[in-house]
Amino acid sequence: MIRLTREAFDPGEALNAFCRRRAATGAVASFVGLARGTGAVGPALELEAYPGFTEREIEGFVARAVEQFALQDAAVVHRIGPIDAGEAIVLVMTAAPHRRAAFEACDYLMDYLKSRAPLWKREFGPDGGRWVEPTEADLADIARWA
C-alpha cells in the first residue's frame, strides 16, 4: 500500500493499523523519517511528486521488494508539499514471518526512496531553498543491494 499525502499524518496510528489482523506475521519493522529544522521561518522542506507516475513507480518497486524479501506485506506513507520541522516525511513498514527480512526490506525501501523514487525535495534554510540530490552516501547505500 502506497499513500502520498499533503496532510500531516500520525506514524503511530498508521503502524498500529498495519499491525492489526496479522496472525501469521512474527515481525513488523518500521522507519520514520522526520523533517529536521534548519532555523528558517516557515516549512523546513517541500516535496514534489509527479501525480500518478510517482505512485505507480513506488508501488512497482515495493511489490518487487515484497517478492525479493518474501514479505507478507509492505507499506509506504510519504508526505508531499510543504512540511514543517518535526513532522514525519516518510513511514516505511514491512511485515514478515521473522525479523531479519522485515529489517532488511525496510532498510532497502528507504535506500530506494532516498535516491530512486520520483520525488524532488527542496530544503529551506536561512538562505532560501535548495533542491536536494542524492549524496554519494545515498548512492553507496542503494549500491549495497545490487
Partner: peptide, 10 residues
C-alpha cells in the same frame, strides 16, 4: 513529456 532531474525522497 516529463523531464525529471535526479530524484530524492525520504
Amino acid at each position: 513529456v516529463a523531464f525529471m532531474p535526479p530524484m530524492s525522497g525520504g
